[in-house]
Design a protein around this nucleic acid. Structure first.
Length: 433
RNA sequence: UCCCCGGUAGCUCAAUGGCAGAGCAUUCGGCUGUUAACCGAAGGGUUGUAGGUUCGAAUCCCACCCGGGGAGCCA
């Protein structure tokens, strides 16, 4: 038996009638007198292995009857087609090897509370639903990289340690850096601007950190962001890129993860519909929509989660809101030459209330104007000398954006909360496991 | 930081001032096609922590701890 070929469950269809070996874990078990039904998982799928008393030794039959949930096992048997199976095949077991017996496994197939599951996140990952989510996350990340790699962008990794500077330090995680303090990055953007002046079209992709005391379904303290930055791009080109990029990611998930989306009971038609062009509205038009809906909002205020959801309800695909008031955006945003009160920026709000997935815009490329902004925001000029250098040595119009991976995963998977979109979520109230 | 809700068996919950309970999980027994299998039995408790009220507290009061939901915050 030990010379049987090891086959992954996802590939079982090509081996009908053959004697094979499965290497995995016991997902579930039912017994019926002279039969044991073992649900075996191996990370690629779940299949039922049937142990009939007449087919195996007494020892093997007894072992099959007492294997505990999540014990690791090797199963030897014949692949058989069976209409009753959800994947179309079963294994008729000939022999079994208990690799390691699991003691009482805490996560059952019944309902559990969120707190309990998060405390057991290291085990929760074994559940089919979590596997489907992480497979979709994998595809999203792959698509992100494929998109930029296929469109002449250079990957430039941004640093994680950053010096004290950008916009005060209240939202940054502080850490010891030899004899001085350093902070964990909350964005690679400023470094990408430097890289864009060197290489033209660049992107970074990595974890970023926010020490905000935010307790909502859209926030994590550690999350992953992809940030492209392009020299000689204006706001319109930036928006065109964001639109094309999102369409590519969504359609690649629709194409490659249909089974995972079905397992998550996602309405796939809503994703199939995510095609260019996306609606584009100005901040002023967004305010009009909110006022029509009876929301109390004044011109100049930024949008919260409720406002974003209200606006997104008017559209069946991502909506691009551009030209926010300068005062509610960051210092590096370029002012609209046609209206100094507006910034050349864009937020992309996902449909179905999933909120902002992209924030970006055209950067201030004039050295004097940028210096003025740094002073207005009471930022320490010396920390930005290198950033100002980019405007001194061959400044060009440039633009970019950042896309939050977890919010994108939550949207495509149809999840209520971002905590399930990352293997080990880091939140204000939770850092374990 | 603020507001709301919660903490009872491994898990999900019940018991609202008077004997600490159920389902699932676990263990044992039964069943040749189970799909969250089913049937029978058993074991399993410092009711988050500390104090107070009371003849008597899981239950009422106070403080604290932990968690959940939301807000603010959020390049």
């Amino acid at each position: 038996m030990s010379d049987c070929k090891h086959i992954y469950i996802s590939k079982i269809g090509g081996h009908e009638g053959e004697d094979i070996c499965l290497k995995g874990w016991l997902y579930g078990k039912r017994s019926s007198g002279k039969l044991h039904f073992l649900q075996v998982r191996d990370g690629t799928g779940i299949i039922q292995a049937v142990v009939f008393k007449g087919d195996v030794s007494e020892e093997v039959f007894a072992t099959a009857g007492k294997i505990s949930q999540e014990s690791s096992i090797e199963v030897y048997g014949t692949v058989k087609e069976d209409k009753r199976s959800h994947i179309g095949y079963e294994i008729a077991v000939k022999d079994l090897k208990l690799v390691s017996e699991a003691s009482e496994y805490p996560i059952t197939h019944k309902e559990h509370g969120v707190a309990f599951l998060l405390e057991n996140r290291h085990l929760w990952l074994r559940s089919p639903k979590q596997l489907a989510i992480l497979k979709i996350r994998h595809q999203i990340i792959k698509s992100v990289r494929d998109y930029f790699n296929n469109n002449d962008f250079l990957l430039v990794d941004a640093p994680i340690f950053t010096p004290a500077a950008c916009e005060g330090t209240t939202n940054l995680f502080e850490t010891e850096y030899f004899d001085e303090k350093a902070y964990l990055t909350q964005s690679g953007q400023l470094y990408m601007e430097a890289a864009a002046m060197a290489f033209g079209k660049v992107y970074c992709f990595g974890p970023v950190f926010r020490a905000e005391k935010s307790k909502t379904r859209r926030h994590l303290t550690e999350f992953w962001m992809v940030e492209p930055e392009m020299a000689y791009y204006d706001l319109k080109m930036d928006m065109d890129l964001a639109e094309d990029f999102i369409e590519y990611i969504v359609q690649s998930v629709v194409k490659h993860n249909r089974k995972d989306l079905e397992l998550l009971e996602r309405d796939i038609s809503k994703l199939e519909n995510i095609k260019k062009p996306f609606p584009r509205i100005t901040y002023d038009e967004a305010i009009e929509i909110l006022k029509q809906k009876g929301k109390e909002i004044e011109w100049g205020e930024d949008f919260g989660g409720d406002e974003e959801t209200a606006i997104s309800e008017n559209f069946d695909r991502p909506v691009m809101i551009h030209r926010y008031p300068t005062k509610c955006k960051a210092f590096y945003m370029k002012q609209d030459p046609e209206n100094q009160d507006l910034a050349l920026c864009v937020d992309v709000i996902a449909p179905e209330g999933y909120g902002e997935v992209i924030g970006g815009g055209q950067r201030e490329d004039d050295c004097d104007a940028l210096l003025e902004k740094i002073k207005e925001h009471n930022l320490p000029q010396e920390a930005f000398e290198w950033y100002l250098d980019l405007r001194k040595y061959g400044s060009v119009p440039h633009a970019g954006f950042g896309l939050g991976i977890e919010r994108t995963v939550a949207w495509l998977c149809g999840l209520h909360h971002v905590r399930e979109t990352i293997p080990f979520p880091r939140m204000m109230e939770r850092i374990r496991p």
